[in-house]
Design a protein around this nucleic acid. Structure first.
Length: 486
RNA sequence: GGCCCGUUGGUCAAGCGGCUAAGACGCCACCCUUUCACGGUGGAAUCAUGGGUUCGAUUCCCGUACGGGUCACCA
């Protein structure tokens, strides 16, 4: 594969959503460009005005930006080969289509849609694949001119060779050869003068100097026709890399129905963006070594197309969560705090607590950011709890032992000066008491944790909770528990 | 249906003719522990199938099955 002066492009249609499979294609496209010091180009393919969706291009911009996939040329920032919005390039295609007619690689077709429907219906009735029957392929020149002069509506079709084969090369799949007889004389220019995607794509990629085409596997079967076009124009054929799809299970694609198909869905579910990118990169691609946690920069370093898979990958939300958890644990305290704070503040609005302590205890125990609110809700308000909370088999605690544990630890806590109320000092004082009494850590600490949180599951143990809540609140919660237990 | 592509544990996957067939997630057990996590140790679990080729096939070839893609004046 050539790796010099690479130009890749991501060419999405503005549908209003960024499908996760599409984002992965964008990611690979970006990585391949950046790995070899090339350019990553964004082109918006909005030729289907019927599908226009308000604000849809913003979804594309915002997603790519949020993911750190910065384009070097694109609609908003321009570049040497613009415009980068396909609908603004409409003027150029007719000329190229006509050039193909002149050189005998395309022809005018005057068949109506009605006739085509009829032909296809007949073909289907006979059990053969519906294709264009090449009715207008060899119309005499004079007749074509007559019809054109009369203003007859027409399309321009590709004149695919009747026999022989076409071979194209894909970096992943190798050489793929198909008989030309299986290729349809596809429409290049529609009756309204607009190009079809199949045509616009080839022309635009060439005009924009795209050297590497990275795209979904669904284009594999139309690639021979693209090659024929490149050859007809005498243009250099780009390097192709077709990537497999992402599936929900063996037979279904990811769908919007399940809320598992779009980038935005995952952000909403509490996934951390670098982790999303990391996981989707791993779907259908395997790194050389054993590490699988990669930042975007590390992916650029590590990526190699030889690691790409030729079979579809099934999306595994559980693994994605695990990767997310790894990310959340590995980032710095400050980064985690920035990501977690909005979630903490959903249920924990108190300002008088040690928020860094909250962040610290949360960080190793959070897989999804959305788990945070219910984890910290006890801070603002001590929930109602039953004395059963003090039973713990492993720590051998009961409401009775807990009462004596709390009664004995209360004065110890009260003796800690306000200014010394931090994890280290509390730990020292409480453990001194534990040692003095000769009891097990858990015998003392489990009741503390229960009294301070009112919950069976908490982020952090008794001492951490005390540090978070501050002296006043800790003491009053313990007093409350003593009262309940008495 | 025609054509094209694919098939290693439940999932992601390494593997490029000779291996006890990596690793990760998940699962189970144990250890650590201030609950839950984190961390650590160990375990169960895979080459779709039938033929070749070969001294030897997960690996190469052919067939079968299964899955996917594609066959628009959509992209």
């Amino acid at each position: 594969m050539k790796t010099e002066n690479i130009r890749t492009r991501f060419a999405p249609s503005p549908t209003g959503f960024m499908h996760i499979g599409n984002l992965r294609t964008a990611l690979y496209t970006y990585i391949i460009a950046k790995k070899y010091g090339g350019k990553f180009i964004l082109r918006i393919e909005d030729t289907d005005q019927g599908r226009y969706v308000e604000g849809a291009t913003d979804v594309i911009y915002n997603t790519l930006k949020a993911c750190g996939l910065k384009w070097d040329e694109g609609p908003d920032i321009g570049g040497p080969v613009g415009p980068y919005i396909q609908s603004e390039r409409m003027g150029i295609f007719k000329e190229y289509a006509e050039k193909l007619v002149e050189t005998g690689h395309a022809y005018y077709c005057f068949c109506t849609k009605e006739r085509m429907e009829q032909v296809h219906a007949e073909q289907q009735a006979k059990g053969i694949t519906p294709t264009y029957d090449r009715h207008c392929r060899d119309l005499p020149k004079e007749e074509v001119e007559k019809l054109l002069a009369a203003g007859t509506p027409y399309v321009i079709r590709q004149k695919v060779p009747l026999d022989g084969t076409t071979t194209f090369h894909d970096e992943l799949y190798g050489d793929i050869t198909v008989p030309n007889a299986d290729l349809d004389d596809q429409i290049l220019l529609k009756a309204d003068g607009m190009p079809t995607y199949n045509f616009a794509n080839v022309v635009d990629d060439h005009l924009m100097g795209i050297t590497h085409v990275i795209r979904g596997n669904e284009y594999l079967s139309s690639t021979p026709k693209y090659n024929l076009l490149y050859e007809a124009f005498g243009w250099e054929i780009p390097t192709y890399i077709h990537v497999e799809r992402i599936m929900r299970d063996a037979t279904h694609k990811l769908s919007k129905r399940e809320g598992d198909a779009y980038f935005g869905d995952f952000v909403e579910k509490g996934f951390y963006i670098p982790a999303i990118l990391n996981y989707i990169a791993l779907l259908g691609w395997a790194p050389k070594g054993e590490n699988e946690i990669f930042s975007l920069e590390e992916l650029i370093e590590e990526f190699d197309i030889s690691g790409l898979s030729k079979s579809p990958a099934i999306f595994d939300p559980i693994k994605m969560k695990a990767i997310n958890g790894e990310w959340l644990r590995k980032i710095s305290h400050e980064e985690f705090k920035a990501a977690a704070l909005p979630y903490i503040r959903q249920t924990c609005k108190r300002e008088d607590i040690d928020i860094d302590e909250v962040v610290k205890t949360l960080q190793p125990r959070t897989e999804l950011l959305t788990e945070i609110p219910e984890k910290v809700d006890f801070i603002d308000e001590l929930p109602d709890y039953e004395n059963e909370l003090f039973f713990n088999k492993k720590m051998k605690t009961t409401p009775e032992t807990s009462l004596s544990a709390l009664t004995s630890v209360l004065p110890v806590l009260e003796n800690i000066p306000d200014s010394d109320w931090n994890e280290e000092k509390i730990h020292g004082a409480v453990f001194a008491e534990i040692e003095k009494q000769g009891v097990k850590n858990g015998w003392m600490l489990l009741p503390m944790r229960a009294a301070l949180s009112g919950k069976a599951l908490t982020p952090g143990g008794g001492i951490e909770l005390a540090a978070i809540l501050g002296k006043n609140d800790s003491i009053s919660r313990i007093k409350k528990a003593i009262e309940k237990l008495s």
